[in-house]
Amino acid sequence: MTEYWQEISALTMRWVRRLSREKFSMLFTLVQPMLFWLIFFGNLFQRAADTQVTQAPNYISFLAAGVVVMTVLNNGLAGGVDLLFDKENGFLERLMSAPIRRSSVILSRFIFVMTITSLQVLVILGVAFLFGVEPATGLLGVAVILLIGMMFGVGLTAISMAMAFSVKSHGDFFSVLGFLSLPMIFLSSALVPLAAMPGWMSFLARFNPMTWAIDAVRPLILSGWSDALPHVAMVIPVMLVFDAVCLYGGAKAFRRAMG
């Protein structure tokens, strides 16, 4: 057990080191979602968005939940990228020829991605706070938001790692990534509530796990526990199923690539 922990912590520290050496990349990763989506998009659509439709005091407070979950989405989907590069330059083989548990590499990646994502979510909520968005459910609500984010993130990271292990080239990986990310966002309640969408879009959005996550996070920020609890009670089993499916697929891809 101590050996297992030694492996996982050394591998996790490697990801932290890499990130800290790429200062620019770190800055842009951290700042991009709040700058681009929350500040620009949120303020830009302030008057275009109808508060009757969004059911929120202003657009930025409506959007906050969307940006939180979008950040989870993007971090999760990109979670396998470093393993992809490790696979391509042979570093992964070096790790795998060492007497380590096969799961250490994967677990270190989950720990790293979840930690970074949680920090980012906190920063986003902080920036939103500066624009007057105060989470209605307080600190406990923030904790629940982080929990939902992590549950969604685990599945996404598993998908990303499965892709990293399965694709032939990193070109393929990034094409699929680009193809997945934006439709996932548009076909969810991130930017517009389902009720305001064209029928076919809201129909599709209902099957998007992202919608479920946002619909639980949003009342935690906007309205309060009585509104939020039914959604939270729904999203947890949904995420458990989502994670189970993604982890199963990920484990299969991993075994195929490593066997």
Binding site: E7, A10, R17, R18, D86, G90, E93, L95
Partner: peptide
């Protein structure tokens, strides 16, 4: 060249030491 370009030579060896 199974090298992590962001790690130093010593860090490579330390990582493997732990593994």
């Amino acid at each position: 060249r199974a090298i992590d370009r962001f790690l130093t030579g010593r860090e490579h060896l330390q990582l493997l030491g732990a593994l």
